[in-house]
Nucleic acid binder design. Structure first.
Lengths: 262, 262
DNA sequence: GTTCGCTGCCACATATTGCAACATCAGTGC
DNA sequence: GCACTGATGTTGCAATATGTGGCAGCGAAC
């Protein structure tokens, strides 16, 4: 029977959505049965709610309920192992572009961490980064000033991100920036996993005197969903192996110089 | 009819995964039998969960259970410190003051790092810290949001400090703050080494609902040059041993409660 | 009255789980 | 080193919970 007659007014859809999102924030996950009981509606209704919120990208649906959305990228500890040699070569090549006294921005990521290890010979650098590990490493190197950008910490990157980070970034005058990326697409463009990441990197291209992307060979020809704004204004792309000729050609059309690290 | 289920609510898969990872973070390893008992599911289910998480590279499977890869061992990093036992006791006492859902500020320092290790059992905390190591540790605990405060990194503290940090701090509504200090002076006051540190801590006393200082016994009776503004408005001082009676008396005159951790 | 959106019910598809039988592993005593 | 033993890991299968799509009832808006 329909639960109309003497029951208190049934919760409106937006009210359910608010409550669902509130619970998600509080508990990390919600179950369909639990919510159906709470709102006194059928499971189908809850599922439709979840489907809707999922389409908006506000949560991820799992069997039996929903969970906070987390873009799944392999854990940091795993990625740092992959292609360590290539990353080190990129690190050395990148370090060669840096001069004493510069203000250097280092993005989060395992390749940029390799750069952090490669620039310890330089003097009087000001480092600007959102990566916890990079900050932790470089702050112990004499003659370096490290500025940590604040923000909400993304566990998969071990770095701050979000509005506060963008905000903090804008305060610096950066001589040279090294940026990571999710992939080097076949048409010669660097793309990213998340909207926020793409935005942050695109912003930095504009802020830095010179901006280089660093991508190891495992990122070649992959596809991730988001284009990086301003990409054509980057100074270069540093890689650790020759990409496909078509990719090289496409990249040279766009503008950024291709640097292959030995 | 109300579509409420009368079945025993079974834990959602993501909830199990969160709990498993949380325990891994806290204890370093988990056993299949233990988890099966806790969730009231069969061992096979737990094994399937572990297999899944292992495929994602978030843990390693061993005979009888699972262990984590990264040796960010709480035990190791803390044991290497002086008076590790005392700090751990303070950590537990501090964790006892925190409730699920709170916004917690953790100052930099080894004693507050011990608190970070002790609060991994709690749920849905928002952590606000300037310490790189605290952020790095807690960002991997499921159900915690970590906000890193930006600023220039002080190598001796491995934490951000300075004007940007003060600025970022002021944006948060903090329920409970745990602050370090340079010394517990004989007249029952917490003092600090630097002007900036004293200022930052004094500011946080005003911002937080409750502010506790944490000081292990090695800080008793020492003298450092700077008084902490607002000290008398702090909620308490947590220590790991009974101080001199005179010091206890002086402290009780000022206001903050003295908590001696066992 | 009609249309439209939301909801609940139903039948059927799919996913997850527990059980049971069997294979392996880590100790233990000899 | 070897056999024994209890605990742990694996696999196939059946039971059950959950997901999906169609359809109809009910109000609200027009």
């Amino acid at each position: 029977m329909s639960p109309v007659s003497h029951l208190p007014a049934r919760a409106l859809a937006p009210r359910r959505h608010d409550e669902i999102l509130r619970r998600l924030g509080a508990q990390g996950s919600v179950s369909v049965a639990e919510l159906a009981g709470f709102f006194e509606v059928s499971r189908e209704t809850i599922r439709r709610d979840l489907k809707l919120l999922s389409d908006q990208g506000r949560l991820g649906i799992v069997h039996g309920g929903a969970a906070r959305f987390e873009p799944s990228e392999p854990a940091m500890s795993l990625r740092s192992q992959e292609n360590a040699g290539g990353k080190a070569a990129i690190g050395r090549a990148a370090a060669g572009l840096v001069r004493d006294g510069m203000v250097v921005f280092l993005d989060s990521g395992t390749t940029t961490l390799a750069i952090a290890h490669a620039i310890t010979d330089l003097r009087d650098l000001t480092i600007c980064t959102a990566s916890l590990k990079i900050a932790l490493h470089l702050c112990h190197v004499p003659g370096m000033r490290v500025h940590m950008l604040g923000g909400e910490v993304d566990p998969s990157e071990e770095a701050a991100s979000g509005i506060d980070t963008l905000d903090a970034m804008a305060r610096f005058r950066v001589d040279i920036a090294f940026l990571g990326g999710g992939a080097l697409s076949p048409d010669g463009e660097v793309t990213d996993f998340t909207r926020a990441g793409a935005e942050q990197r695109g912003r930095m291209i504009g802020l830095a005197g010179k901006a280089y992307f660093v991508l190891d060979r495992s990122k070649f020809g992959k596809l991730t969903p988001l284009r990086i704004p301003n990409f054509e204004r980057a100074a270069g792309v540093i890689v650790d192996a020759d990409p496909e000729p078509a990719l090289v050609e496409a990249l040279s059309q766009k503008g950024p110089e291709l640097i292959v690290a030995a």
